[in-house]
Amino acid sequence: MSESGFDLGLDDPSRAGVYFATNEDLRTLGMAARDAGLLARSIDLRDCKTKATLLLRLSSALDTPPGSGRNWDALSDQLRDLSWLPASGYALLFDDASDLRDADETSFDTLLDILQEAANDWAGREIPFWAFLALAEAEFEASN
């Protein structure tokens, strides 16, 4: 059992990937990620409506090295590297992801693809990489 009482198996790279959650779940997931020895970073997507804003917020949350590019290729490279943030694994927690999805579905879908590619790449190195994107709780209730 972990310090927080939540053992979600987040240290298992074969289970890692991109998942949807609610904003309320992100706090618990963040605690569980830290208990599993992962580096957890929060990315606030509230009122994020463009690719440029998304890339800026990601760059800030990940503390990317100076001179790093701000485009999809650079993001893909950065998420598969993270050498400036050494850790035994990673968990990215995206608050209010539905704001970006509703404003720019193309950028949202591209982000999902890049995150999944990064998770697959890290899993090949036996390192867990998780991305949790928070959607409104009503969206989960509607799918039941």
Score class of each variant (00 low, 15 high):
residue 111 L to V: 02
residue 64 T to W: 11
residue 69 G to L: 07
residue 122 W to H: 13
residue 93 L to Q: 01
residue 86 P to I: 02
residue 105 E to A: 12
residue 58 L to D: 06
residue 105 E to D: 13
residue 115 L to A: 14
residue 129 F to D: 07
residue 71 N to S: 09
residue 112 L to E: 14
residue 100 L to C: 01
residue 109 D to V: 00
residue 46 R to C: 05
residue 122 W to E: 11
residue 64 T to R: 07
residue 108 F to K: 02
residue 59 S to K: 08
residue 51 K to A: 13
residue 106 T to G: 00
residue 91 A to C: 10
residue 77 D to L: 15
residue 104 D to E: 12
residue 37 G to N: 08
residue 53 T to E: 10
residue 107 S to D: 04
residue 39 L to C: 15
residue 40 A to V: 00
residue 95 D to I: 00
residue 80 R to V: 06
residue 100 L to G: 01
residue 102 D to T: 07
residue 43 I to Q: 03
residue 83 S to E: 11
residue 44 D to M: 01
residue 37 G to Q: 08
residue 64 T to N: 07
residue 52 A to F: 07
residue 36 A to R: 12
residue 61 A to I: 06
residue 79 L to K: 06
residue 48 C to W: 01
residue 129 F to A: 13
residue 115 L to I: 08
residue 120 N to L: 12
residue 84 W to T: 00
residue 52 A to Y: 05
residue 52 A to T: 13
residue 73 D to P: 02
residue 95 D to C: 00
residue 59 S to E: 10
residue 83 S to T: 12
residue 49 K to T: 10
residue 59 S to A: 13
residue 117 E to M: 13
residue 90 Y to H: 12
residue 78 Q to Y: 01
residue 60 S to H: 11
residue 76 S to Y: 03
residue 48 C to V: 14
residue 121 D to V: 05
residue 62 L to R: 06
residue 40 A to I: 06
residue 121 D to S: 15
residue 91 A to G: 01
residue 57 R to W: 03
